[in-house]
Amino acid sequence: MIDPETFKQFKIVGKVLTDHRYNTSHSGNISMRAGGKILIKRRGAMLGFLEPEDIIETDLYTQDSGIMLSSTETNVHRQIYLNTDAMAVIHAHNPFCVILSLIEDEITCLDAEGIYMYRKIPVIEVDNPAGPTDAAREVPPMLKNYPIVVVRAHGVFAKGNTLYDALQNVTGAEQSAMLRYYTMLSGKPLKRDYSKEKFFSEW
């Protein structure tokens, strides 16, 4: 059983993601590393209303029977942990990130906060966007160099040192994507495009 303080982090992060409408009632998953294990949301549980038994423990290094209960994307989380410096991972279906992934190959940040945090957010494409197999292969290499990546037509995977840190990456990226989308929608040219000055394309 998960300890109350750790559970509290899961509960808060799950609630924020749901309140921000980054997920449907049951979608999305969040996890953290813990002593050779992964603590991860249970499949079929509601992210915004987590209970202690909704946090499943599964082995960090190998598949085990925890997969019977844990999130569909457990193996993506596992591969991220095994291949990057992530200590916590969030997967969400941020609407503006998904929209831009449908029409762009990367999301270039226009706002100061986004420029400071991310500069650009990579978009990757897989053959089966709903399935975890392709994502488990393609997402970890990107998260070696970026805090967050968008899987085209699906959603984001963000890493962090803690769940709250990963949460900031999810919300920050979505904020930048939203601002970029509305700017594009206005149809007006940028007065000053910082991305051209800061070598974003080489980032």
Binding site: I67, M68, S70, T72, N75, G131, T133
Partner: peptide, 12 residues
């Protein structure tokens, strides 16, 4: 494809 995606059937 769906059977391959769901962890219970594809992995567990």
């Amino acid at each position: 494809d769906k059977i391959k995606v769901v962890p219970i059937t594809s992995q567990g």
